[in-house]
Amino acid sequence: MTDKLQRLTYVEDEPDIRSITEFALKELGGYELDVCASGPEAIDRTPDFNPDLIILDVMMPGMDGIETYKRLRAIPQLAETPIVFMTAKAMKHETERYRALGAADVIPKPFDPITLPDRVREIWQQVRKTAVAS
């Protein structure tokens, strides 16, 4: 695990939310970003991009975020890569389900794009702290 968060994969099917998140993470956060519009696209491209962290929408047509999560996890190179769900399905029982799957954290929609880069950085720091402790 690298010290500094630099490379992010972001998976989202809805064009408007994809655009504002891309703007927030790339322009405001300064991250190097690979944006995927579907689960299959993410499975195809993410091993080569080799991100430090993955942000994944849950409700997507065809392959949803949960299935995409499981398939990404099955790729040996990505087995330990932190994955964060970004979703409007963020009731307590839903976030507990994502965490039980092994998600690093959950960012509920709607979110504030201005503070999103800081939120992602906080998650990264927490993940690193946990990794060092174990």
Partner: peptide, 19 residues
């Protein structure tokens, strides 16, 4: 399904009343 998506998108775009 459409409304659910609009809820998250409009709120994130700064339109809290629409969200």
């Amino acid at each position: 399904e459409i409304t659910h998506q609009l809820k998250g998108t409009a709120g994130s775009m700064g339109f809290s009343e629409i969200g």
